[in-house]
């Protein structure tokens, strides 16, 4: 060996590797929905308290992402979509991710409790517990209903934002929760339709793996139809209004149409155009959620100016 430079595949993780552990894309959705939950609430927090609350809700979500990556490192290594995550890529040691996730979980819950109230901190702690223990450790590997129940973890942030501002849970907070909860299954099943090979290889019992794609297509339309009344109901609460209702009606029409198109297709058609429709519906579902919360934000602004 003539080369004097030592190349080590597992070396010092950089700051960016730890940022990747926090799942920044998921975090951005958490920040947005929690922020909306806080802004549309009838009570308002002072600016530094509000900033602190959002920061630590986001870090709490990030911490649960790091703990999820620690637990699911074996699955992530097999799946193409996740193979480049810091642990399977050998950039971060599993123990480092575990310590990072635990420390950040405790810090974020404590800081949210100190900045706002104990109920908000308790909800954040429960969300982390639910995502890491109930979803990642238990449901994900044991039932095809994994994302149906596990979706609750992603649905809590707007409720936490609301509780941070008001100190209590209300119908509006529950409906914001229900909107994300009911949206999660069709969103992830649309993804699973064109990422099936990944889940199959990792032996994750997604609906597409256990019951086949035909059943999954039927489930997508069923859950999309169940999502419609939930999303519209929010428009009739004090945080809704005409802007929200019109936006929601249009988005629901689009989502149902996409789900019907998915239902009408079979595997042959999907493979022929490389899951074009399924990919479109998946992307549309992201806009669906973003625009619903955006409409709530518009309603809050209109009320503020009125």
């Amino acid at each position: 060996m003539t080369d004097t430079q030592i190349e080590s595949p597992v070396s010092e993780p950089g700051a960016s590797d730890f940022v990747q552990l926090l799942k920044p894309r998921v975090m951005s959705l958490v920040v947005f929905t929690a922020l909306v939950g806080m802004i549309v609430a009838p009570a308002h927090l002072p600016p530094v308290t509000a900033f602190t609350a959002i920061l630590f809700i986001a870090l709490g979500a990030g911490a649960s992402g790091a703990l999820n990556m620690w637990w699911d490192a074996d699955i992530d290594a097999v799946m193409k979509r996740t193979a480049r995550r810091p642990i399977p890529a050998g950039k971060v040691q599993p123990g480092e991710a575990l310590g990072f996730g635990l420390a950040l979980s405790v810090a974020s819950v404590l800081m949210l409790g100190l900045a706002t109230n104990l109920l908000a901190a308790g909800l954040l702690a429960f969300t982390i517990f639910f995502y890491v223990v109930v979803y990642s450790m238990w449901l994900k590997r044991s039932t095809p209903q994994n994302i149906v129940i596990g979706g609750a973890a992603g649905a809590f942030p707007p409720m936490i934002g609301w509780v941070a501002a008001t100190g209590s849970v209300s119908v509006e907070a529950w409906l914001m929760f229900a909107l994300i909860f009911m949206w999660t299954p069709p969103h992830f099943w649309a993804l699973a339709l064109f990422m099936n090979a990944d889940y199959d290889a990792a032996r994750v019992p997604m609906l597409t793996v256990t019951h086949g794609k035909k059943v999954t297509r039927r489930h997508i339309i069923a859950y999309t139809l169940l999502l419609v009344p939930v999303s519209l109901a929010l428009g009739f609460t004090p945080i809704g209004g005409m802007v929200y209702l019109v936006t929601s009606a249009l988005l629901n029409a689009g989502f149902v149409l996409g789900a019907v198109m998915i239902l009408r297709r079979d595997e042959e058609m999907a493979q022929a155009d490389k899951y074009k429709v399924e990919k479109k519906v998946f992307t549309f579902s992201l806009a669906y959620l973003f625009l619903h919360f955006g409409a709530l934000l518009v309603e809050a602004s209109l009320r503020a100016f009125a």
Binding site: P13, A15, S16, F51
Partner: peptide, 26 residues
């Protein structure tokens, strides 16, 4: 990598101190 990590840890701690101070004042 070690330098970048230490820098970010330092900045995060500094930010945390500032935030705690601002929160206390508020």
């Amino acid at each position: 990598r070690r330098y970048s990590r230490n820098l970010w840890v330092g900045l995060a701690l500094g930010g945390f101190v500032l935030l705690s101070f601002a929160l206390t004042v508020e």
